[in-house]
Design a binder for these strands. Structure first.
Lengths: 234, 234
DNA sequence: GGGACGCTTCGGCCCGCGCCGAACCGAGGG
DNA sequence: CCCTCGGTTCGGCGCGGGCCGAAGCGTCCC
């Protein structure tokens, strides 16, 4: 019966069908774990309310949680979910943004320039990374996306340890929402992003997923001109 | 403000957050246009009810409609929506199907064997098509998926006219839900499917998206053994 | 023109659920 | 041990929305 399948899909969609829960999920797209109170403040609801929403999302398998002392940390359950959310937020009717303030314009600019997409790099920065790696023969597109032996060596030289999870692909292409071109995801994409943040090559801009690019990002081997453009002030 | 973005996502999800509407959308994944009354019967609700649901879905941009005389035909608005729905239905919590009847088991088998995915071929049949075309040099994966000159010639020889729409890619890979591997979508995938049905190489099995494969499918150039397996009775 | 038919509009019912404040619980910290 | 603080449970409120039957409207066909 096709109707039960419909009920399942509806049950899943219902998790996102509330403004508060959708806001929470989008915030979690930054790939970090948030506490309940942080999310309550972000979404503008009381703590009891957010608590029940989180129960629902965890129960439904969208989020996973870690309890530490008196804190409850939640994050997206898995990369597949993150990927789907990213696609959804791209397709959801992006109303024509008129009457935009200067502040929101510069925020959007920073977002398009460099940001995280769940746990990897995106925006023009993400595109620059995947293009440079392809040109240098570190990635191979012949039969789907693959990391070449040169690519493995390159990661070792940079001292980047790649955590390969159960069944997670080493490299994966992920459609960039602003660039409409694929950027690098998967275990390598995640490791690169973590490394870049740890080394201070990029810094998170508080309040969103946007990143600030610093000049030392050239350590990744990106063309100097590109890094300069990405790091320039608005 | 990230909250408005959340509201938009929620508004979108709300369209699918009802069992009746979700059932309708999944039925429409067969790529055909349905009338309001057909959908009312399928979903098990009254005609007034389905009418309002369709208004909502059309208004929301998920469905498009064509009025013909006293009939109202609706179909999925575009291939992107179909693709997203396919991904969603794959990720939505597929409860472990225990205690399954013989009838539902054979239905699932037919579904996995050969079916439509929106407007193209899927299941083991879809995989056989994309594999065969790749082996014969009709498709090229070097830089994303592309149709080779040989591929164009092959389509002409078969007498298959490909309708290239505004901005629709000629070929596109689409992840197969049962096979977990990409099959062929895009304008060519659509044309192939239409042609195969028109020629009677495959037939729709009423009540779902599953297809019945006939021996004459060898006209597509698939290995005889594969066609025999796909066409064999259960 | 008249009847059949596909669809829509209207009114009304009722359930689900998102929200909050108040109270409660348990982990830390001095 | 008591206070603070993050989180949860409970009771209750109000609204949104999914459903139907009855009635209405336009199209098609005889």
């Amino acid at each position: 019966m096709t109707t039960t399948e419909g009920q399942e899909l509806a049950a899943w969609a219902r998790m996102l069908a509330d403004g508060t829960r959708a806001t929470v999920c989008l915030a979690l797209l930054d790939g970090r774990a948030w506490t309940a109170t942080e999310l309550a403040a972000l979404a503008g609801v009381s703590r009891p309310t957010i608590s029940e929403h989180l129960n629902l999302l965890v129960e439904g398998g969208l989020l996973s949680e870690v309890r530490q002392g008196r804190h409850r940390y939640v994050e997206l359950a898995n990369p597949e979910t993150a990927h789907l959310l990213e696609s959804l937020s791209a397709l959801a009717p992006r109303r024509t943004e008129v009457a935009t303030s200067l502040k929101s314009a510069s925020r959007r600019d920073a977002f398009a320039r460099a940001r995280t997409c769940y746990d990897h790099l995106a925006g023009r920065l993400g595109i620059a990374v995947i293009d440079t790696m392809t040109e240098r023969g570190l990635l191979d597109w012949t039969d789907g996306l693959a990391l070449t032996p040169d690519g493995t060596r390159w990661l070792e030289e940079l001292g980047i340890a790649v955590k390969t999870g159960r069944g997670r692909p080493l490299v994966r292409s992920c459609l960039d929402v602003t660039e409409r071109r694929p950027h690098l995801a998967g275990a390598v994409g995640s490791a690169l992003c973590t490394h870049a943040i740890d080394q201070g090559w990029v810094r998170r801009i508080p309040g969103g997923r946007a990143l600030k690019v610093t000049g030392s990002l050239t350590a990744l081997g990106l063309p100097v001109g590109v890094v300069r453009e990405l790091a320039s002030r608005v």
